[in-house]
């Protein structure tokens, strides 16, 4: 059992001060689900619960999700089933299970990239911005270019901001796994706009579960722009996905298998 020191700051600036001044290794405590999984780790923690960082607000232009909003709250928020054709609700329900969704936070999900970090993929799709306590903000692309912990440094993510200008675009998220509540063998997400029934005007494609970092398939996206979805195009884009994908080790299946099925999962979510 852990004997970690816990700091209980009264506000965000106090939290930052502790983070800066502490000589020992200190981490912000978000959902806490991974903390007790590794009880021998010798960190100290700064409790973020109680700092009013759990909220979901949307105005005309932006959706703001406080970093301590739980995945469960996000899934239950009415607009999550509406914006982007329900992309957020679809994605959040692939994360863990009901009790854990009540603890895993939006911030935790994107900072400590775990096998269940689907939200990172969604932020790449939606061009989300990661807002931090120090004022330095990151685009999703920047934030997930390396391990977010290394990018963040001694800082705290306070909220995620997602532009709402394209909330009528169609989003889809699909997890492929052994059982329904399993970590993904791989997940894919797309956000697209159709020109007419069968032609893609533009599309964004993301995958998680291939490596620690979420991946975007920019070359394949370009290939699909303004294209009609014929059988031939689908064959070509499957190859393109397979070429673009970076796939790491997984004790459950071989990398070749993941590469093989990329196209199949993509077909599941295509219009």
């Amino acid at each position: 059992m852990s004997n970690n020191t816990i700091y209980l700051p009264k506000n965000l600036s106090e939290a930052l001060k502790i983070l800066n001044n502490s000589k020992e290794k200190v981490l912000p405590l978000a959902g806490g689900t991974t903390l007790l999984l590794n009880p021998t780790e010798k960190f100290s923690y700064i409790e973020l619960d109680g700092l009013n960082l759990d909220y979901i607000k949307s105005d005309k232009n932006n959706l703001s999700i406080g970093a301590m909003t739980t995945i469960g709250q996000l899934a239950a928020w009415p607009q999550s089933a509406r914006y982007w054709n329900g992309l957020i609700r679809e994605c959040t329900l692939t994360i863990a299970s009901t009790p854990n969704r009540n603890m895993i936070t939006a911030g935790g999900n994107i900072v400590g990239l775990r096998p269940w970090s689907a939200l990172a993929g969604v932020l790449l799709l939606l061009d989300g911005k990661i807002i931090t306590a120090r004022g330095k903000n990151y685009t999703a692309k920047e934030f997930f270019s390396k391990l977010p912990k290394t990018i963040l440094g001694k800082n705290i993510v306070t909220k995620i901001r997602i532009p709402l200008n394209d909330k009528d675009l169609i989003g889809k998220w699909k997890k492929f796994s052994l059982t329904e509540t399993d970590y993904p063998i791989l997940s894919m997400g797309i956000l697209y706009k159709l020109k007419n029934k069968n032609t893609i005007e533009n599309i964004k494609i993301v995958a998680t579960g291939l490596t620690i970092l979420p991946q975007r398939f920019i070359k394949t996206e370009r290939m699909l722009k303004n294209k009609q979805l014929t059988d031939n195009i689908i064959k070509l884009l499957t190859k393109s996905l397979q070429n673009e994908a970076v796939i790491g080790a997984d004790i459950r299946v071989a990398a070749e298998y993941k590469r093989e099925i990329l196209g199949a999962i993509f077909k599941d979510i295509l219009p």
Binding site: G32, T33, L35, L37, E47, S97, P99, N102, M103
Partner: peptide, 27 residues
């Protein structure tokens, strides 16, 4: 299981189920 996977330890906190084996008591 002590890893938040089996649900045998579920309690409700403010009406919502959580796995108490991975819930920090101080919270």
């Amino acid at each position: 299981c002590r890893s938040g996977q089996c649900g045998a330890c579920v309690v409700l906190v403010n009406g919502l189920p959580v796995n108490s084996c991975i819930y920090p008591a101080g919270r």
